[in-house]
Simulated assay, not measured.
Amino acid sequence: MSLRSTLCLLTLPLFAGCQYLPHTDYFTAPENEPNPAWIRIVNFTQHDDLYQYENGVRTGGVIRTGPLPFIHTQDKGMPKAGQNLTFDYYETQIRPGIETHVGMYWEGSRTKSCYVVTQFTPQAGRYYQFKMTSGSSGTCTLYPSLIERDKDGDGWHLTPNPDVTYKRDGPTAKTRYNNSLFENPDYHPPESLYPGMDVR
């Protein structure tokens, strides 16, 4: 067998294996939407996702703008409603009138995590906010809100959004261990197995 044939046979599995490489879908804001709805997702944006469903087709993905985990904040000028938002939130326009899912995920030390998914149908021209608390206390809670103009028209405020449903038990999820070995507080694996993670 010639050298060329041998090289071709050796490289063929590399190209065939590309379909098995990890792939991440990212949310992309709709272009040329004449009257969009707006959404803000607050906290843990490096793990959160946003999907919209129309005619059985799902579009969207994780909301961070690229594969680098430290890109958390995207400010599009939505009303802040008296909140002191300086870091780790994501604002975007979304298509109104179709089923929309927001998934928020908290990840702590020793593989502990919790995840809440909510769904709703946004209305054109309205502002929505989804904020989740840390799971360090044993649970995390997602707070869906409407951002509405004050009655006097001078400012904005948050009100609970009653038009959301949850894919599991509700807005509060218990933390769980992704690796059950960590349930034992005396389990301390070599740090090289979990680079960058607090395993002590």
Score class of each variant (00 low, 15 high):
128 Y>W: 07
112 K>R: 14
68 L>Q: 15
97 G>T: 08
71 I>M: 14
100 T>W: 04
61 G>S: 02
179 N>S: 01
81 A>I: 03
80 K>V: 11
18 C>D: 12
122 P>K: 04
39 I>T: 06
106 W>F: 07
99 E>C: 15
116 V>A: 03
15 F>G: 07
88 D>R: 03
11 T>V: 15
20 Y>H: 10
101 H>M: 15
190 P>G: 10
124 A>Y: 03
154 D>A: 15
143 Y>A: 00
131 K>M: 12
98 I>D: 06
167 K>E: 14
60 G>T: 00
16 A>H: 08
19 Q>P: 08
87 F>T: 07
27 F>P: 02
127 Y>A: 06
116 V>E: 04
88 D>T: 01
141 T>M: 04
53 Y>R: 13
99 E>K: 15
158 L>Y: 02
55 N>R: 12
99 E>S: 15
138 G>W: 01
76 K>Y: 14
29 A>C: 09
96 P>K: 02
160 P>L: 08
167 K>Q: 14
7 L>F: 12
184 N>Y: 02
9 L>W: 13
140 C>E: 04
103 G>H: 10
109 S>L: 14
162 P>F: 07
197 M>H: 08
103 G>E: 10
103 G>I: 05
147 I>V: 06
150 D>K: 09
163 D>I: 10
154 D>L: 14
123 Q>R: 11
51 Y>L: 12
125 G>H: 05
62 V>R: 05
126 R>E: 13
66 G>W: 09
102 V>W: 00
149 R>K: 12
78 M>E: 14
143 Y>E: 03
